[in-house]
Amino acid sequence: MAIKDYIRERFFPHMWCPGCGHGIILNNLLRAIENLGLKKNNIVMVSGIGCSARISGYVDFHTLHTIHGRALAFATGVKMSRPELNLIVPMGDGDALAIGGNHFIHAARRNINMTAIVMNNRIYGMTGGQYSPLSGYGTSATTAPYTNIDHDFDVVQLSVAAGATFVGRTTTYHVQQMVDILQKAITHHGFSVVEILTQCPTYFGRKNNAGDGVEMMKLYKDNTTSIGSKKKQENPDLIERGIFVQKELPEYCDEYKNIIARAKGK
């Protein structure tokens, strides 16, 4: 199947701004799914609220466009009742880690089999460029005209500490790596987190003089490196890309099935 077979073409062109990285994530998520040969009927995409959450409207899977920060809670409900389905949960950085911060850490702790994608553009785009928990110290936003004094989360470290059994990070510039990591995350049996750095030229780029979509992608190229590379040792400020954790632990739905069997005395 071509990736065009996985989208709802009637809703295109999509609503994202020119140069927005979210479309690149959609593009390569579909390629990962195509490479895996997954059937559309076996995929459920659950999203919350925000620019990122609009992604579920464009894909021709089972889709749920739910409430702010609660995508993982809805996804947990779907997965518990239909564990055979593949759950993909794309979220924005605010959606996943501010409003949905608790759902995020507890889904990771349970190790429920689903793929959480954090589309990290470091800002609330849809509502007008307010700073998010991932904007970071010293950045500018509509709500931080004299720069932000909040420090940001490290999504990878947070996910590892919360117990996610697959944790990866890449950017919209590194598209081949994105397809590779997403494929591994989707096939991983457990809770997978993939952080994808994605540009918001309209708000984050404009407020921080980072330029347009092209310029912001060049920054991803220049400011990131592979995990444990020599470049990282020479310049500790570089952001690492790759797979940080990939381990097998008992999965939540499997454990729940065992509990049911035990309760029935089997």
């Binding site: 990736i3 062109p13 999509h14 979210h22 593009n27």
Partner: peptide, 11 residues
Amino acid sequence: KLCELRCPDLA
């Protein structure tokens, strides 16, 4: 195919 992969508009 990098243009196809990086196109945010799937165009």
